[in-house]
Amino acid sequence: MDNFDTPLSISEEDLKRFIEAIKTASTYDFSEYSEKSLMRRLEKVLSDNQMEISGFIDRLKQDTSFLEKTIKDITVNTTELFRDPTAWHMLKYNVLPLIAQNDEINIWHAGCSTGQEVYSMMIMLNEMGLLNKTNIYASDLNSDVIETAKKGVYKYRFNLLYLDNFDKVLKENPHDPGNKAEVSYSKYFDINKVKDTISMNSFLQKKPLYKKHDLVTEPNPFPGVAYDLILCRNVIIYFNYNLQNKVFSLFFNNIKINGALLLGMHESMLGPISSRFEKKGQLYIKSKKLNP
């Protein structure tokens, strides 16, 4: 974490060689990834491996397991429990009530990373009495993070900061500031300060269906499922416009009418498909009006 000491040690040329090497040796193509972010990640991988770019690229070409590990390191994403409380408040008060009456609710976490968003959603659904009739689907490009998500065990010390978010989202009501709900942590997870862990309770661990999935190249990872809500937060920031459009089309084709897509706090949808969605803040609704 603190080994960042050479802000720009690789050149654009190096980055191109890296992308080419990955493309040749695997099914992954990073050529349309956001350049600066990819560069930053590559620098981190180099520094973690204590390697220099030329030797690194040579090894990628020769060593398949090293290649796989590198791809995993490059595609890993960080997240926290109830990241961005305002987005969760919006889900709780403005979005979920719209689909609460449905007999069955399908939610897809696209790019679920290590699963904190998935658990946050399940906790909120349970508090709203909606968890039983909801199917939770989650996918990520990186199979390692999916394994972490399935286990649902996180570092306590790091997540301690985010218990504040838990309180804010579940106990406070921005529309009724005086009214505070009582929600206990132990209903949902065990905190072990000695082991430094937060472990999600097993009824939450067992609930989601996970699948390894590439948003850019693959169709709906859960064939036949139409979604009431898709969450894809802080994933498309790593893609260029072209890739973003592919991903948005995939979402559009698999969201129900009146279903919604939630992007990250500072992401927005541009391009042709955006005209088919009604935008409400960070939320994109596939409205009947626009899709008769």
């Binding site: 974490m1 603190d2 960042f4 956001s34 350049e35 600066k36 972010s37 930053r40 990640r41 981190k44 994403n77 960080t78 997240t79 802080n234 920031i237 790593y238 990250g264 500072h266 992401e267």
Partner: peptide, 9 residues
Amino acid sequence: ALSSGEPIN
């Protein structure tokens, strides 16, 4: 370009 990569320092 925004990134939600891990915190640095």
